[in-house]
């Protein structure tokens, strides 16, 4: 059993949970994730490690309410427990002194990109961050990213904060500006990662994405999370989650992510009903 030490709502439907998991906190590296299960009847879901504190023995998860499990996680309070927390999983992000790296984050992807941006900055890279959300109420951790970015850029689709538009627009401008961009990291909804990769492709800049396939075990056992990269089938949980964005078969990823839409809806209705009657 893993105890929740602290919880906070960061933005509309975006929540933070700090979990006591000292063994994981000791080993966590940027880009890795953990598989969480709330209780015996719950499903296993992967969530990126947004932060960790070895001294405190804690790991921080940030997630958006999208279905039954995230809905239930959002209702947990400090002092509650989750049954299972397995990690750190996945191959850590490749951190090196690349030169200038643009970190592009969409929606809740900001949580995943923050530790990566910090690690890159610590390694001596020039970090340009582009954080985008649909509107102002969905933005969070602006300070955290600002503190590690040489050049922080924020966009909102509707212009309620920062620059109006999608993250791909300032990304394109940077590439066209002539400044030498050595690497791009893009994390967020799969459609955003796809378009970020398409934007950088003509410029030939290596673009790393973090694929968010459906997972069950997260340790390379089942093949649920299989993706096609460069024409080869790979498992996002053990071969990734980072992959070369220019090689990913995005349509396949989108199709596979839709495998359980009906069941997800049914599950959400079931748990919503359970939570309202149970309390």
């Amino acid at each position: 059993m893993f105890q929740i030490i602290y919880r906070e709502t960061l933005a509309e439907k975006i929540h933070l949970l700090k979990i006591e998991a000292p063994a994981v906190a000791r080993k966590a590296l940027a880009g890795q994730f953990a598989v969480v299960r709330i209780d015996e009847k719950g499903e296993r879901i992967p969530l990126t490690l947004a932060d960790w504190d070895e001294k405190e023995g804690s790991v921080t998860l940030v997630f958006m309410e999208v279905g039954a499990t995230t809905f239930r996680l959002a209702a947990l309070k400090a002092g509650d427990f989750v049954a299972n927390f397995a990690g750190p999983l996945g191959i850590p992000s490749h951190i090196d002194k690349f030169g200038t790296v643009v970190c592009v984050a969409g929606g809740v992807g900001t949580a995943a990109i923050a530790p990566v941006a910090e690690a890159l900055r610590a390694k001596g890279n020039k970090v340009i961050s582009i954080v985008g959300a649909r509107n102002k109420s969905l933005l969070f951790w602006e300070d955290r990213l600002r503190s590690v970015s040489h050049q922080p850029i924020v966009t909102t689709d509707d212009g309620t904060y920062g620059r109006k538009g999608l993250v791909t627009e300032p990304l394109k401008e940077l590439l066209e500006s002539g400044e030498k961009i050595d690497r791009v990291i893009a994390i967020g909804p799969s459609i955003m990662m796809k378009f970020s990769a398409l934007t950088t492709q003509p410029f030939g800049v290596t673009t790393i994405v973090s694929l968010n396939s459906i997972m069950v075990d997260g340790t390379g056992m089942c093949g649920s999370c299989r993706v096609c990269v460069g024409g080869v089938t790979k498992l996002a949980c053990v071969d990734g989650p980072d992959f070369d964005g220019h090689q990913v078969d995005w349509n396949l990823l989108f199709a596979r992510q839709r495998s359980y839409l009906k069941q997800e809806k049914r599950s959400f209705e079931y748990w919503q009903a359970k939570m309202s009657e149970g309390s």
Binding site: K41, G42, E43, R44, A68, T69, V216, S259, Y260, Q263, E264, R266, S267, Y270, W271
Partner: peptide, 15 residues
């Protein structure tokens, strides 16, 4: 392992 045959009570689906 995840008892999909008891979905949605056990929250992992199978199609």
């Amino acid at each position: 392992l995840m008892k999909s045959y008891l979905f949605p009570e056990y929250d992992t689906p199978i199609k």
